[in-house]
Design a protein around this nucleic acid. Structure first.
Lengths: 151, 151
DNA sequence: ATTTAATACTTCGCATGCGAACTATTTTAC
DNA sequence: GTAAAATAGTTCGCATGCGAAGTATTAAAT
């Protein structure tokens, strides 16, 4: 029965590994036509909704550590997709903003409606709802059980 | 209505990003007490069930590319967890096997029943079932829609 | 005011994963 | 038998993500 419980856990773990993988693949396909990476595309999306945020806020929106966010921003600045300007009022903070090039890509991603993501719309509506509900539940269980970062 | 559909997609994408992240965190917590990484632990598990496989087979079991599998194996050999021996019959192939140290860790992971994964058992049974079902459905949609590797 | 804390970011070393290009060994074809 | 193609792995350069340690800069404490 030890084996049994282990196998149950493994089943869930494997399922998650597999779906994460398949999903990651899809996101790459989606992004690569725009000549950008999935994470960077997500940054552009977040910046559309929350303009002028700093790196720490960005990291929180993306559920990333500071160092990871810093790296992404760095590459995007180098690629000319966003700008990073020191705040006048608090010189520890950087203000992030999209460049024209960044806005263009973000706009294109909207227009194409991300063709490669369309398979997702084949998921029956109830299943999609269920999925979001269960995911939310799990995230809650996981993030509260361990971690306990803020709030 | 363009915006609307975009937002729907984003909701799913974000949910996946978030849950993948939370899950990844959990797997690390689970593995790190054994002084191993999640992927490497998974390799040990696979080797338990499928002994003496080669790198390509391992890559398939883990849903990885060859190069990624090659890298993991490399690090595990260096860490003394597994061995990599050329096959006599077909010298292109390596046979992978666990060392004593590898077996030990694998055994420990079974005994501890991966304490950190226990939060997962708080997921209601029906939800877990639903989750697996929907995940399976999605994987099928995603892998068949694009990719189409084998079968 | 000066020391101390907290905050915002960066940097480093590491493991993961990808695809593309390359080597070596079979296998198949002709 | 020899040339061509398939198969098994490796290597390279890249992006991602982590945590730990380090640098400024600002806020709080005494």
């Amino acid at each position: 029965m030890l084996e049994e419980k282990e196998q149950q856990l493994d089943e869930i773990v494997s399922s998650f590994r597999r779906i994460s993988h398949a999903f990651q693949q899809l996101l790459w396909k989606d992004a690569e036509e725009l000549e950008i990476t999935p994470t960077q595309l997500m940054v552009l999306r977040k910046l559309t909704v929350h303009p002028d945020i700093g790196i720490t806020e960005l990291a929180e929106l993306l559920h990333l550590g500071n160092s990871a966010a810093s790296g992404v921003v760095d590459r995007m600045v180098k690629a000319g997709l966003i700008t990073r300007q020191r705040s006048e009022s608090d010189r520890r903070i950087f203000h992030l903003a999209m460049t024209e090039k960044g806005k263009e890509i973000r706009e294109k991603s909207k227009q194409s409606l991300r063709r490669h993501l369309l398979p997702l719309t084949n998921i029956p509506a109830e299943d999609a709802g269920e999925l979001l509900r269960i995911h939310g539940e799990i995230v809650q269980i996981l993030e509260q059980g361990r971690g306990k970062k803020k709030l």
